[in-house]
Simulated scan of single mutants.
Amino acid sequence: MPERSPGAHVVECVRPLPALAARFDLRGMATSYPLERHAEAPVDVAAGTVLKAVPTG
């Protein structure tokens, strides 16, 4: 088996991302929370009202 470069696994992981981005509304899956509301994020995720909470600020 030929030796792979150290970053080859990263390329393999990143290669399918454009196709996934075309299939799914990735921006719509994330909800931004300003830092002053950070405590709400895990509560909303646990309640199922948010798929991915992203702190901003």
Rank of each mutant, 00 (worst) to 15 (best):
19 A>P: 04
28 G>P: 02
26 L>I: 05
44 D>Y: 02
25 D>T: 00
36 E>R: 14
13 C>W: 11
23 R>A: 08
5 S>V: 02
5 S>R: 15
40 E>G: 01
55 P>N: 01
9 H>M: 06
14 V>F: 03
18 P>R: 02
30 A>Q: 02
6 P>A: 07
50 V>D: 00
32 S>C: 13
41 A>W: 06
13 C>G: 14
40 E>K: 01
29 M>Q: 07
50 V>W: 01
29 M>K: 14
35 L>H: 11
36 E>I: 05
38 H>M: 12
34 P>N: 04
3 E>T: 13
44 D>V: 05
20 L>G: 03
36 E>Q: 11
22 A>F: 08
11 V>I: 02
11 V>S: 10
8 A>N: 10
23 R>W: 04
42 P>H: 00
47 A>R: 00
31 T>H: 06
54 V>M: 10
47 A>N: 12
11 V>D: 11
39 A>N: 14
12 E>M: 04
1 M>R: 08
26 L>A: 08
48 G>V: 04
1 M>Q: 08
52 K>R: 15
56 T>R: 10
21 A>E: 12
31 T>L: 01
15 R>P: 00
1 M>G: 07
35 L>E: 04
10 V>L: 15
47 A>G: 04
41 A>I: 01
25 D>W: 08
21 A>W: 15
5 S>C: 05
19 A>M: 13
9 H>K: 06
3 E>D: 11
57 G>F: 00
46 A>V: 12
28 G>R: 09
46 A>I: 04
21 A>I: 08
25 D>K: 08
17 L>E: 13
12 E>I: 00
33 Y>V: 02
24 F>I: 11
28 G>M: 06
27 R>F: 02
56 T>L: 05
11 V>Y: 03
50 V>E: 06
26 L>M: 10
55 P>C: 09
57 G>S: 11
54 V>W: 06
36 E>W: 03
25 D>L: 06
23 R>L: 05
52 K>M: 15
32 S>K: 12
17 L>R: 10
26 L>D: 04
50 V>Y: 00
15 R>C: 06
45 V>P: 07
46 A>Y: 09
26 L>W: 09
23 R>N: 04
30 A>K: 07
29 M>P: 05
56 T>C: 07
6 P>H: 03
28 G>E: 01
31 T>G: 04
36 E>C: 13
34 P>E: 01
15 R>H: 02
16 P>L: 09
27 R>N: 14
12 E>Y: 05
20 L>T: 05
51 L>I: 09
53 A>R: 08
28 G>A: 08
48 G>F: 08
22 A>N: 07
